[in-house]
C-alpha cells in the first residue's frame, strides 16, 4: 500500500525544524511502523541523504525507548501499543501521516524525532525506589503481600518510562509516570517506610523539571502503551496530602549514637 509521511526534521535543538514529505509507494501491511521507517532510511542513505533519527531498541514494546507522535496521537492510533509494535496493517492505502517528536519543555529535542527524557530518571533518583542496600534483606517469604496489593503494584510497575503520558498531556504533565511509581511502591509493605517522603521528593523534582500540572483529563492513560490507570494519580494526590498534613517531622534527640 501507499503511505505519505510528513516527518518532523530538525538537526538539533537550536536549529529550526520542519515537516519533510516522503512518499512510500510499497508498504507491506506486515511491517511494523519502525520497519517502515527502516526502509525509508535505507532509501535515504542510498540517496546520500540524512536518515530520519528516532529512538528505538528492543522493538518488543517493553524497553520504552521508542515513541513519537503519529497524527497527534502518542505511539499512534492503536490502544495499549508502543510505536514499535504498531503494524502497518492498522493503516490504509493512501493514508497521510504526520510524525512529530514528544513535545515538552522537560524533554528537550535532540534531533528529528528523538528527545532527551533524562528528567524521568531524575524523578526516580529523587525517591522512586525502596532503600534496600544489597545484602540487607530478610527471607523473601517473611514479607507477605496480599494478592490484590501485589496485583495493583504490578499494574503500576508495568510502566516502561517511554514518556507518552507527557507527550499526550496538553499540559506536558508527568503525573502518570510519577504516580505509577508511587503506586507501585506504595502498595507494597516494603514501600511503606519511605512512602510519604517518596511522594514529596518525587513531586518536588517533577515540578522542578518543568513538567506541567495535571488537569485529570485522562489523555495520558489513554495514550499509555501499558494502560496505567488514572487511579494512580489519585493515589499520589492522597499520599501527598498525607505527607503534608499528617506526617510528623523527623525529631532527632541530638544525643548522637555514642
Amino acid at each position: 500500500m501507499r503511505i505519505i509521511l510528513h516527518v518532523w526534521r530538525q538537526k538539533n535543538a537550536q536549529s529550526p525544524g520542519k515537516f519533510e514529505r516522503y512518499e512510500r509507494p510499497e508498504v507491506s501491511p506486515d511491517m511494523s511502523f519502525l520497519e517502515m521507517l527502516d526502509v525509508l532510511n535505507e532509501d535515504l542513505v542510498n540517496k546520500n541523504e540524512q536518515p530520519v533519527v528516532f529512538d528505538h531498541d528492543c522493538r518488543e514494546g517493553i524497553c520504552g525507548a521508542c515513541g513519537f507522535v503519529v497524527n497527534g496521537i502518542a505511539h499512534g492510533p492503536e490502544d495499549g501499543t508502543t510505536v514499535c509494535q504498531l503494524h502497518m496493517r492498522k493503516f490504509k492505502d493512501g493514508d497521510e501521516l504526520y510524525l512529530e517528536p514528544w513535545r515538552a519543555k522537560a524533554f528537550p529535542l535532540v534531533r528529528d524525532l528523538l528527545v532527551d527524557r533524562s528528567a524521568l530518571d531524575r524523578i526516580i533518583q529523587a525517591g522512586g525506589y525502596i532503600t534496600a542496600p544489597t545484602g540487607t534483606s530478610v527471607d523473601a517469604n517473611n514479607i507477605l503481600v496480599a494478592k490484590p496489593d501485589q496485583e495493583r503494584a504490578m499494574d503500576a510497575a508495568a510502566c516502561i518510562g517511554c514518556g507518552a503520558c507527557v507527550a499526550a498531556c496538553p499540559n506536558a504533565s508527568a503525573m502518570l509516570f510519577t504516580s505509577a511509581k508511587v503506586t507501585h511502591l506504595g502498595n507494597l509493605p516494603q514501600g511503606q517506610p519511605e512512602r510519604l517522603d517518596r511522594v514529596e521528593a518525587m513531586v518536588a523534582t517533577m515540578d522542578k523539571e518543568g513538567f506541567g500540572s495535571c488537569t485529570l483529563i485522562g489523555e495520558c492513560s489513554a495514550a499509555c502503551p501499558k494502560s496505567i490507570s488514572m487511579d494512580s494519580i489519585a493515589r499520589l494526590n492522597g499520599d501527598y496530602i498525607r505527607a503534608t498534613f499528617v506526617k510528623r517531622p523527623l525529631e532527632l534527640s541530638g544525643q548522637g549514637s555514642g
Partner: peptide
C-alpha cells in the same frame, strides 16, 4: 497553573490530536 502548563509545552504540536478527553475537561 495555567502559566506553568503553558511553559511546559513551549513548542506546540503542528498536528494535534485527542484520544478521549471531553471538551469540558479541556
Amino acid at each position: 497553573l495555567q502559566l506553568i502548563k503553558r511553559a511546559a509545552r513551549p513548542v506546540r504540536y503542528q498536528k494535534p490530536g485527542i484520544i478521549q478527553a471531553t471538551p469540558a475537561s479541556r
